[in-house]
């Protein structure tokens, strides 16, 4: 009977096309659509801050160099992972991540909570040549980041596009994006004050690559690595508090 029906269906190209679209649509609609509406999907984190322009630029370098192919940013709810990397990741922690960088392969360790675990000097030396610090490492060397200046003139556009997709950047943040990027890596300058004013006192303002006057891609990437897992602290609070 069903096969008889199919016998007729496969003679009609248009109906066949519609049948494929119908059959293939159900799964995605059922699984994806509710994620945008069900409140429990993403926890509340009222104190969570957005990435500074320098960190956002560093995140783009992390994407550009394909770091996500070997490093995950998603600690699973398994005992050994929590003991190795820290509290398991919550959905809210990546709510400003367009796109997410959870990753699916650990050729290197998870980085979801690597922020402030190592010093800036360690990161710079490690990125210039990982084997200087970890002789057995197979991570690529990224020495050229240290000699490439960071492009800042389009950072306002980046923040504006991020606001368009839902990240709450203010007009002031967008207008000062370039100078804030410079300021975050140049402590004790007037530019640095603007960063803490707009992104909070707890924002790290340091000469990440060790050279305050010179803004490099190394500055941006290290600034990003040092904020990983630290935009909000809900994950380290008891579950009841995090859910509220």
């Amino acid at each position: 009977m069903l096969f008889g029906l199919h016998y007729r269906l496969e003679r009609k190209a248009t109906w066949f096309v519609l049948a494929i679209i119908a059959a293939a649509s159900v799964g995605g609609i059922v699984e994806i659509a509710p994620l945008f509406t069900i409140h429990q999907t993403v926890e509340d984190a009222p104190q969570m801050r957005v990435y500074t322009p320098l960190e956002a630029a560093g995140r783009n370098i992390y994407i550009r160099e394909g770091c996500y192919a070997c490093h995950s940013q998603m600690i699973r709810t398994l005992r050994d992972e929590v003991e190795r990397y820290g509290p398991y990741s919550l959905a809210v922690e990546s709510k400003y991540d367009h796109p997410m960088l959870w990753g699916s392969k650990r050729t290197g360790p998870d980085l979801a909570r690597v922020g402030e675990k190592y010093s800036d000097e360690w990161h710079v030396a490690h990125l210039i040549n990982p084997r200087h610090l970890v002789p057995e490492s197979v991570m690529p060397a990224y020495a050229w980041l240290n000699r490439t200046g960071l492009r800042t003139d389009d950072l306002g556009n980046h923040l504006r596009a991020l606001r368009a997709v839902g990240v709450p950047y203010t007009d002031e943040m967008i207008a000062n994006a370039a100078s804030d990027a410079y300021g975050q890596a140049a402590p004790d300058t007037p530019f640095a004050e603007g960063v803490t004013k707009r992104y909070g006192e707890a924002t790290t303002v340091r000469a990440f690559d060790g050279r305050p006057g010179e803004l490099t891609e190394m500055d941006a990437l290290v600034a990003y690595l040092q904020i990983l897992g630290r935009l909000t602290d809900v994950a380290s609070k008891p579950v009841a508090a995090a859910g509220r």
């Binding site: 994806i32 994620l35 993403v42 709510k95 400003y96 796109p99 997410m100 980046h158 596009a161 997709v165």
Partner: peptide
């Protein structure tokens, strides 16, 4: 920038 983020983007 992708219009999806975080968990929705992962899915």
């Amino acid at each position: 920038y992708s219009i999806f983020s975080g968990v929705q983007d992962a899915m």
